[in-house]
Design a binder for these strands. Structure first.
Length: 477
RNA sequence: CGAGGAGUAGCGCAGUUUGGUAGCGCGCUUGGUUCGGGACCAAGAGGUCGUGGGUUCAAAUCCCGUCUCCUCGACCA
């Protein structure tokens, strides 16, 4: 017991020192390590496997929606960036630029993509000629680079992995419709795959993507009550089409600019699920993305038949489509229990001579920390499958309830400050003026995350004028 | 970019105040006993103390420079 306490103290207290808890967890569970260059991270196999699971699930949804995958170059001519005025202004401070190559200074500097609207706009301009070419809908999985001042694994790194989807439509209505559709897709994905509730909605002008007409976001509530922007979709109108000459001849024979939109989620999602579900023992991984869904720990492994029984169960579960793994290392059972709990494996099956003799298995649930030795070994596939689904639902319900309880409607900056100080989101009326938004930020260090689609508030919390929107305010990562 | 903190064995740290043969825990290797909540014994391997200069008979330790990382703020997926 004393040693177990010592183990727990290896990671910082989640309640009193959340930032340190996060750093401890991502490093000690071997999700990531720091790279040698400031702000870079190595995504280690355990972390990358989570990303691959996210990719697989999302990619299937994109395909289902009719989007094709492609790949565009990492390097973008600097001149591309300057073609869209707001875009260059927004991204200029954080782009990395290649000025030399092949031992010589380049004629034109090349930026390492911070996002690919410009180069994809350029290519789409070449490919779109007729209304028959539309819609054009492509997605790429790639890395991007944004030279951020301060960084943190998954949440903000100089280089990160993401997907960026880009579409051109003949009409603004269609492009807008896809902007909403992708936001819904992200929300559904967050719920069913990450077991994570999110708030979705339109961003304010201040918070929107550089060069967009409108930005929509999904925001997740972290354990400490701060918000994490976990995905965005952007409606560009004709801004980028005009900058990159994306034109087509319409059915009526006239030349028209297309309407574009884009959408993306990144490895930040991994940070989001860690900070949503984690607890004092470490990670709690949602079953759909957990690299190992069931770890099988042999007890008294050298006793006859124990290891064989574990291997046989592993094979059966794998056949049933469960990511199962026997931990046959030399570590003691107690060590394995703690290690895999920290690593967030949803289910642990303990198999020892006693279980085998009774035809049972002992099952431990990571999310509830409950242990039950009453499961029949003969029926393992069904029971494990059911448990994994139950965990999914329970994780979502628990997070959803917590989020719901921690959204407080407020009516003044003072109330808002108090709400966010106590780890809540604040919901409030807003007149729509930048001045009031800025005032909230200065007063409470909280920003407008998204507009509530369910607009009910009547007056602005700052100026008392009629409210044009109801806004979710929060401190954000 | 501002304010703090830290660079000593794979990891975590002590040693720096007051200069004098580089240490501890974990991990690792080998052998053995263990195994139902981080087991134990024995024997080993492993370090130009971030880096450059200076002071000194002598520097991990004092001085100057420099690089990197972490945390917190301002900016951002």
């Amino acid at each position: 017991m004393a040693k177990n306490e010592q183990f727990v103290s290896q990671i910082a207290d989640i309640e009193t020192d959340f930032p340190q808890w996060y750093t401890d967890v991502v490093l000690k569970t071997k999700l990531v390590d720091y790279g040698p260059v400031k702000g870079t991270m190595v995504i280690r196999p355990y972390g990358y496997a989570i990303w691959e699971n996210i990719q697989r699930e999302l990619d299937a949804r994109f395909r289902e929606a009719g989007v094709e995958n492609a790949y565009f170059p990492l390097l973008i001519p600097l001149s591309f960036m300057t073609k869209e005025a707001e875009h260059v202004e927004g991204f200029a401070p954080e782009v990395a630029v290649v000025t030399h190559a092949g031992g010589e200074k380049l004629q034109e500097p090349l930026v390492v993509r911070p996002t690919s609207e410009t180069i994809i706009g350029h290519m789409f301009g070449k490919w779109v000629e007729s209304w028959r070419d539309l819609p054009l809908r492509q997605n790429q999985w790639c890395n991007v680079m944004r030279w951020e001042k301060t960084t943190r694994p998954f949440l903000r790194t100089s280089e990160f992995l993401w997907q960026e989807g880009h579409s051109v439509y003949a009409t603004g209505e269609e492009a807008e419709r896809e902007t909403f559709a992708m936001l819904r897709l992200y929300g559904e994905f967050a719920k069913t795959v990450l077991c994570m509730p999110v708030l979705t909605g339109r961003k304010t002008e201040k918070e929107k993507f550089a060069g967009a007409v409108a930005t929509y976001g999904m925001e997740a509530m972290m354990h400490d009550g701060k918000s994490l922007q976990s995905g965005t979709t952007h409606y560009m109108g004709q801004n980028f089409a005009k900058a990159f000459d994306v034109r087509f001849t319409d059915k009526d024979g006239t030349l028209k600019y297309g309407y574009t939109m884009s959408y993306g989620v990144s490895t930040r999602l991994i940070g989001a699920l860690i900070m949503t579900h984690g607890d004092r023992r470490g990670l709690v991984l949602p079953p759909p993305v957990a690299p190992v869904q069931v770890v099988i720990v042999p007890i008294a492994a050298k006793k006859e038949g124990v290891l064989e029984a574990c291997r046989s169960l592993e094979a059966r579960l794998k056949r049933a489509g469960v990511r199962a793994k026997v931990d046959d290392s030399d570590n003691s059972p107690g060590w394995k229990f703690n290690e895999w709990e920290m690593k967030g494996v949803p289910l642990r099956v303990e198999l020892g001579p006693r279980d085998i003799e009774n035809g049972k298995m002992t099952v431990f649930r990571r999310d509830t920390l409950e242990k039950d030795d009453g499961y029949a070994l003969s029926d393992a596939e069904t029971q494990i499958g059911e448990l994994l689904r139950t965990i999914c639902k329970d994780l979502y319900d628990r997070a959803e309830r917590r989020m719901r309880e921690r959204i407080l409607t407020v009516h003044s900056p003072e109330e808002l400050l108090d709400a966010v100080n106590r780890g809540n989101f604040a919901r409030a009326g807003w007149c729509g003026e930048r001045a009031c938004e800025d005032r909230v930020k200065e007063f409470a260090q909280a920003t407008a995350r998204v507009l509530d689609e369910n607009h009910t508030e009547t007056v602005c919390l700052c100026c008392g004028k009629p409210a044009k929107h109801t806004v979710f305010f929060a401190r954000a990562y």
